[in-house]
Amino acid sequence: MPTEEEIFEALDERHTEEIRRKLWDSRVDIAGLGGLGSNIAVMLARAGVGHLHLVDFDVIDLTNINRQYYFIRQLGMPKTEAISEILHDINPYIDIKTENVKITPENYSKIFGGAMILVEAFDSAANKAMLVNAAMEQTPETKIVSGVGLAGYMDSNLIRTRKISDNFILCGDGVNGLESGHHLMAPRVSICAGHQANAVLQLLIEGGKNIR
């Protein structure tokens, strides 16, 4: 097992010491650990984000395996537990806090109060809207990175990142959802997850000044 110092040296070699320190001191909150959330958590762990707060109430089902970052051996496990296992395999020294709870407008601020960056990674449109509205109304200083429009297997290049307002960044194609009869498949889900994870890095490293 490499020491924490050895992992830091490897990250310094890849990303520079300045960026490694910044990311290691950062906290990111993720709501939902399905196709978007599990992939985003893995990317942020690989990038060296030091503190992750991960929230989901669900357990892993066989129909999740087509796109979510889980394995057959983890079927039936709570997603919070399974993702912690995976993230600790990537970096054993990450500080991971998990909560197995269904998020509502009523418990939102108890769970995410103080969040600097909140990643919206839910599945249903109504839950996405609920979370984004709760965040904007209850913790207006929190920066939200939401994923909308990633279903199907049409043009990858329709998926993009755009700033709606200073604290609200939207990733995805904006239109192709489950409602339009599309199914969720690994590539476009992962592309959108990549956009969201990269927007988080842009926010953490340079305050998001290059997100338009």
């Binding site: 939902g32 909308v148 429009g149 609200f168 409602e179 889900v189």
Partner: peptide
């Protein structure tokens, strides 16, 4: 107006 669609 941001309109949400399902999938994640």
């Amino acid at each position: 107006i941001v309109s949400f669609v399902g999938g994640g």
